[in-house]
Design a protein around this nucleic acid. Sequence first.
DNA 1: CGGTGTGTTAACCGTCTGGTCAAACTTCAC
DNA 2: GTGAAGTTTGACCAGACGGTTAACACACCG
Lengths: 242, 242
Amino acid sequence: MTAPPQDRSSRPAPEEAEAGAEAHPEASPEAPRAARTKRRTRIQAENEEKILDSALEAFSQHGFRGATLDQIAEGAGMSKPNLLYYFRRKEDIHAALMTRLLEEWLEPLEAFSAQGDPMREIRAYIRRKLEMAREKPRESRLFASEIMSGAPRIEDYLTGRLKELVERKAAVIRQWIAAGKIRKVDPHHLIFSIWATTQHYADFDVQVRLLLDAQGDGHLDDAARFLEQLFLRGLAPERPEG
Amino acid sequence: MTAPPQDRSSRPAPEEAEAGAEAHPEASPEAPRAARTKRRTRIQAENEEKILDSALEAFSQHGFRGATLDQIAEGAGMSKPNLLYYFRRKEDIHAALMTRLLEEWLEPLEAFSAQGDPMREIRAYIRRKLEMAREKPRESRLFASEIMSGAPRIEDYLTGRLKELVERKAAVIRQWIAAGKIRKVDPHHLIFSIWATTQHYADFDVQVRLLLDAQGDGHLDDAARFLEQLFLRGLAPERPEG
DNA sequence: CGGTGTGTTAACCGTCTGGTCAAACTTCAC
DNA sequence: GTGAAGTTTGACCAGACGGTTAACACACCG
């Protein structure tokens, strides 16, 4: 009877998804969890995927509070108790989505390297980000939604890994400036403006499409052309080919 | 017994707020509403303002579905039934906020005029938009939230007034291009990129502040400087001072 | 075949949510 | 000061919400 009441050891269920688990390292340091069943079955993998996909749809549209378990369960094609068999709490689903997302989120910026032509790098970064806006618009909106609600669940990420990465890349940009390869601009605001312009096509997709009468994804090619022009010319050093 | 059940004529209350009313011109063409009390009392004006302010906070953070009436009532310092005396339904509060917002939203772009130096106009537009991000960040998030949830309540606005305005301003930009005053770029994407970069400082305020260690609003001045540089140089015609 | 762990669900629970109602209280013009 | 209109609230309601329980179905292995 020493253990806190939070432990429901009788259940043989899979623990909260890979992600959510380590997001809450609070209490119960040695976690007397029953069923150390680490190996996922095929059904587990499939159903968790269905749930996360449905949850992504719901959370990205209505935010954490606005999305409901019933809605997510229906989207995943299963009953609510069944959903809660895989993820014990609403928060766990969200946490699983977030950790997966945040990893992907760093990737394009990570690839931004000091070597190579600055213009090439910036161009590649814009393309990569636009590609993500095309392929993963819901993820982008999920992130935006989280930030707009005050980022209560990802403060650590923002002030930790993300900030560190941004600092590192800002330093790269400063190097380029010092070397006279690009114009003298504020590195942070340069990064923000690339984020803003590219993510806009995911987050404001509805508006963009309505204003452009866009059907497929063709407008994103136009966007790429425009943004490349804007940034490359906006950043070109005073004396080109100096 | 010919009237639909929607009419609750016994109540002497003020009708739904100025805005919400005309947003739903459906049914009951001659509206047999009791109490043609058009004049607002002081208390009405005050309380409606308190409610809208509290609702703006709630909706902009949690979206329409995520915000609750209890929360809004508490923020407005009144009981829930009292709140519902001024706005009959949750939707009405949201509608009132939106119509007020959408008017303000057009204003800066409206000011964008064909006369005068293009560079001056673009610069002024960026400043105006950044000023709004500073002064009305919650409004910006409310708008973003609405778009991200699929814009179910403002489709008419997007395809109507906004689209028309954007078309008009895109034409202005095309004129400037034809006159060789700015570089040849896609007008729509130019507008989008200004929206995206400026609104970013409102919508992603939390992230921006954490990454910059920003306290007050000083970073917005840096943002203004950066964005002006970026756009003015990015758009400058091939041969400056041709 | 039996049994053990996996997967699924109907029924349920307490709380929250949007909204109603009648009654009471306040305001203010006369 | 009185009365009618304007304002406020406690009590209430039905349905939605996040979550629990217990029992049942299935799968696979010996």
